[in-house]
Design a protein around this nucleic acid. Structure first.
Length: 154
DNA sequence: GCCAACGTTGGC
DNA sequence: GCCAACGTTGGC
């Protein structure tokens, strides 16, 4: 399978780009949306590029570049009754939820804000800027990837 | 299978 | 904190 690119959202007060820089690699636990899970399970490959996005904060936007560091595997938090992500309906021999490991590549020189992304005609088809989109994991085309990172130098 | 109620996401 | 938009749940 050829290399693809993704955007993954994280709330910076939960897990920021600086936190990823510090640990180097993070198991992306807690995804509880089937569409996002299917992207991880069916389409993600080690080495795929990731735009790291800060959501639910003062300045939402792309703040870093990361990469997929492993194939999808069972998310252990679904079996932990003390976890916010516990899912009593999921069976260990047939886990409902998966995670991938995400590796730090670099922090951007500046935040590429959601406002900028929304203002760019080049990104009209980008899922992130479309109305009502709440997916926390979404695909980025090669053209979108190049355009978004091109904004960093402006 | 329909759909109202409810919970969550996430920008503002 | 507000609320629009969306996904999920569960009664029927």
């Amino acid at each position: 399978m050829s290399k693809r690119n993704w955007l993954m959202k994280s709330e910076p007060h939960e897990f920021s780009i600086d936190a990823l820089a510090k640990v180097g690699k993070e198991p992306w636990s807690g995804v509880r949306n089937y569409q996002a899970r299917n992207f991880m399970r069916d389409d993600m490959q080690p080495g795929d590029g990731v735009l790291f996005y800060h959501s639910n904060c003062a300045e939402p936007g792309v703040v870093g570049v990361a990469e997929i560091a492993g194939l999808a595997r069972s998310d252990p938090t679904q079996f932990d009754p003390r976890s916010d992500y516990h899912d009593p309906g999921s069976k260990p021999d047939q886990p409902r939820w998966l995670l991938v490991d995400v590796g730090f590549k670099r922090k951007l020189k500046r935040t590429i804000t959601l406002a900028e992304l929304k203002a760019a005609p080049e990104l009209a088809d980008f899922a992130l800027v479309q109305r009502g989109n709440r997916l926390s994991v979404l695909p980025v085309s090669p053209a979108q990837w190049k355009f978004i990172l091109g904004l960093e130098k402006r």
